[in-house]
Amino acid sequence: MVALQLGGAPAATLGEVKNRADLVIFWGSNPAESHPRHFTRYSGSAKGRMNPRGRKDRYIVLVDIRPTPSVKYADEFIQIKPGHDYEVLTAMRMLTNGNRPDMDSVGDVAIQTLERLVQRCKDARLGVLFFGQGITETRGKHQNSMAIYQFGKDMSRHSKFLTLPMRGHYNVVGSGNTMCWQTGYPFAVNFGRGYPQFNPGEFSVVDLLKRKEPDAALIVAAEPMDHLPYEAARHLENIPTIVLDPRETLTTKMADVVIPVKHAGVSVEGTAYRMDHIPIKMRSVLNSPWPKDDEPLSTIIARIKAIRKEEAET
């Protein structure tokens, strides 16, 4: 996200990959396990306008620090030394821009291998680089994403090329979009001054909790007790914590207040954003006795306004 803010990116919806991509690179992503149908629907065997034979019309490269179950779907696997994504990407940018690094290998990858890969990108009708958590959640974080986007922009001077993140949670893209159109920022916002301020590292959840700053928490459809580093999550045990969730989780079990809600996309309709920013209306297949989560949130808003008014009057 920060990388996008800083530099932008060449992107497209996944249908472009389906219809035109003849070179697909997965970097730090293991779609066979994390996004199992990405391959058949969009990026691997999907048939499209310029790819009538599907898989046969695409060359697929997997770049990762170790072999994963996705390797068997690729034409080529490039194994790089852990923590060396940035160096490898920088070498690829140099090669793209016509400079050969004065070394035999970088991050345990032979320069010739990278030269071949860069040439494939330059020759592609449409080249696509998907990158996953293996690169965004390791050392360097947004610097790595930045290097990916910069590579994409450099390559765009030679061929049609896209750089697309493999996002995880089904509507994490929606949360970024909604926050962006209402606050101007996609995450890590603070309203303490009466207007939105943005500062990742200061207002991001892990940093806030590690510094023990919040004195109360509302968790909506997330599992911080499971997903956040324990040294951050444990602060939630020390402050009043409210959880809205359809199901019992590690977080509901420790929460002070649990408000059950319908399960979006299972027991209630609602809009979610796909990883390529296309919003889709989810359907409902089960009944739930609880309200949709925006209802208790609306009630809370109304109650707090009423409490404030009472306080102002007394």
Partner: peptide
Amino acid sequence: AARILAASNNPLIYGLAATDVDAQ
């Protein structure tokens, strides 16, 4: 929940990624 949040000086709201746009 309303009482807790109304009394808080520095609340945190976290999550949003696994629900729909209306809730967000």
